[in-house]
């Protein structure tokens, strides 16, 4: 039994708590060390959050902010382009996440099976490289490769192979609603798979060799060892990676921004690009509306984090926040 002024030790002994002031004084060294961090967090993390109020204001250059209530949210929820962007954000992010994670797992397993260390390291380096290219460069490269003009590499190959006839129009891959998403996923897999393998390779290197030796004694084939030893050992890491990344799905912007165009808005426009156009493509934007859309995105992101935390608790026995 403990009350406000008493506390119970691990051995069950009740002791009287010292007053708060005295406890602070006794730990003053720690508190002094903590103070700058506390101020730092307040200024850089919480002070900017006061900007949320602009979601409920008209906030334009050349005028003082004025309260408008829920007007921005009414406009946002009644705009079909917003809902399209919201749906696209979820679909593109989640599908991309699963595909790149899956690809990373497969590549990691293959790399792990390689016996020649030199080839393994070389391949690892090669597949890491795309991660270090900026999205602007990646987009330029793929725009050239996929160009519908006579200089486009893929269209040229299709013609050389006779798949496209002399009278057929070139395929405009990045302006076709049916093709844009698959291409987007492919480019993401190309760019991020290598980087994603790092964590899986680290896990794989931690698998006890005894498990493989035991499997050998039992007469397991290579594929059986992958199936019954490697993949189960990776399962926890895969789930952790998925959960951690699921919390970030609303942040999609750059990769879409450099690859999309008005012909594929219906399948490519995400909340980030939608906010960008509504804010920076007009001469005198209302930042209140942009803030409202951003706030909505943050709330959805926050809910996803909480869901992931719950899922993490269930799967790993500990949360992510």
């Amino acid at each position: 039994m403990s009350n406000k002024n008493t506390t119970t030790t691990a051995s069950g002994i009740q002791i009287r708590r010292k007053p708060l002031g005295l406890r602070i004084w006794n730990n003053r060294g720690h508190y002094i060390m903590f103070l700058p961090v506390f101020i730092f967090v307040l200024i850089l993390n919480y002070w900017p959050m006061l900007g949320i109020r602009y979601a409920f204001m008209e906030y334009k250059a050349g005028g003082s902010p004025s309260w408008t209530g829920l007007t921005h949210f009414e406009r946002m929820f009644s705009t079909s382009a917003f809902w399209s962007a919201f749906g696209n954000t979820l679909v593109l992010s989640i599908v991309k996440l699963f595909l790149t994670t899956f690809a990373s797992v497969i590549v990691s397993v293959f790399l792990n099976e390689m016996g020649n260390l030199f080839v393994k390291k070389t391949l690892q380096t090669i597949i890491y490289l795309p991660h270090f290219m900026s999205w602007a460069v990646v987009a330029s490269i793929f725009t050239l490769i996929l160009s519908p003009s006579s200089t486009g590499m893929i269209n040229g190959m299709l013609r050389d192979l006779g798949i496209l006839g002399p009278n057929d129009s070139s395929i405009y891959f990045l302006a076709d609603s049916k093709m844009w998403r698959p291409i987007f996923y492919l480019i993401n897999i190309w760019k991020d798979t290598g980087w994603g393998t790092i964590i899986f390779l680290a896990t794989l290197s931690g698998i006890s060799p005894e498990l493989y030796e035991a499997a050998d004694i039992d007469g397991a084939t290579r594929l059986q060892k992958i199936r019954f030893v490697t993949l189960p050992a990776l399962a926890n890491t895969i789930i952790t990676v998925l959960i951690l990344n699921l919390a970030k799905v609303m942040n999609l912007f750059e990769s879409v921004f450099v690859l999309y165009n008005s012909a594929v808005y219906d399948v490519s426009d995400v909340i980030g690009t939608y906010i960008y156009r509504q804010t920076f493509m007009v001469a005198r934007p209302d930042y209140g509306y942009s803030t409202a859309v951003g706030l909505f995105r943050s709330i959805v992101g926050c809910i996803l984090v909480l869901i992931c935390n719950k899922a993490s608790n269930k799967v790993r026995g500990r949360g992510i926040v």
Binding site: A175, S262, Y265, R277, Q278, V282, R284, P285
Partner: peptide, 18 residues
């Protein structure tokens, strides 16, 4: 217009692309 022209330009660009 100064606040929402982007919506009109978006819709117009979609028509041109289509």
């Amino acid at each position: 217009y100064s606040e929402r022209s982007a919506e009109i330009i978006d819709a117009r660009d979609v028509v041109i692309a289509e």
